[in-house]
Design a protein around this nucleic acid. Sequence first.
DNA 1: TAAGGCATGTAAGACGTTACATGATTAC
DNA 2: GTAATCATGTAACGTCTTACATGCCTTA
Lengths: 183, 183
Amino acid sequence: MSQLTNLELTVLGIVWKKAPITAYRVRKEFITSPSTHFSGSAGSIYPLMERLTEQGLLESKSGKRGKRSHLSYGITDKGKAVLEEWLDPPLPEKSAAITFYPIRTRMYFLGLLPPERRIAFVDDALSMLSEEIREVKAFCDEYREQGEQYSELAMESGLYFLQSQVRWLKKVRERLTDPGLSR
Amino acid sequence: MSQLTNLELTVLGIVWKKAPITAYRVRKEFITSPSTHFSGSAGSIYPLMERLTEQGLLESKSGKRGKRSHLSYGITDKGKAVLEEWLDPPLPEKSAAITFYPIRTRMYFLGLLPPERRIAFVDDALSMLSEEIREVKAFCDEYREQGEQYSELAMESGLYFLQSQVRWLKKVRERLTDPGLSR
DNA sequence: TAAGGCATGTAAGACGTTACATGATTAC
DNA sequence: GTAATCATGTAACGTCTTACATGCCTTA
């Protein structure tokens, strides 16, 4: 059995949680998510869910709503076993490694900008973070109201992350307004 | 001019900082980095640096060391301009969005595991984070010693991130050992 | 009745990965 | 001498993306 990708495993998890669910609804989960890592494009989701079905990890039933038919997916026992194995510790190597973050990556090279623009950069980043934090908090609240406790916890991970970046950027800002930083 | 990818822009930045530098050394930067987002594989870096050279963003000089010849790269004025435009605010949309993080993703579905395994998961994640924090701190120290102040700041972003995840997981752990959390 | 959301797909392409391949140089 | 590192590449592959395409259903 070929190794499943993160996207495939995530879809498997979504189906486990939300079954019965259509591919369209799965896409929506990605599209509305505050994480932009996966686009949830049709070109990725539809073939992927077919693939998982062929592998016996998902099962589909065709339903109807008026004249319009659609495929509802559920997870199979085999799918559940695969998902559980993915979740069960130990985590694979490097699972805790720091991620790619556009703001951090730019920071490496910030010395290229003229000094005023460096401060402008930090301020811009801080305001984007505030916006993001608002959005993620709204998701946390929504999950809490729905009693989706693990989703709420997961979303709080993102919140903690964003807040940590705010603290970091405030520190950066202080350093930049101090003298003694060149290059 | 086609939009450059994050990898291309990052390479551009590395060359700006470290010129003259060989493709091999650029690869090393990725391979030794605590971020695993880019592998720094030969198949990505060599063609990429050729591409950037063709586009006039990098320039290469062939050098020699004994019998062995190699290409040393530097950044052109055009390359510097592109890099500066990338850095200069405003940041593109979604630059602050939360990233994909394997531990967080799994958290959504943790309810699938039997209760004891959930705690084991959190403990495993915490120990991986500790290890990662040690590594990132070492990088911070190294950059500080070398006077690479922006690299140090950038690495501190990662440190803040990891520490925020530790706090998050400790909170998760408390909730899991408390009663009243199901599904 | 028109716009927007629901629902399903296909095609072309870019990007990056793994794996393979070669040979010189340096350090032990 | 031999192992590790330096250095440069190529080939096949998979995955995901963007863009295109269609048609039904609901609501204003």
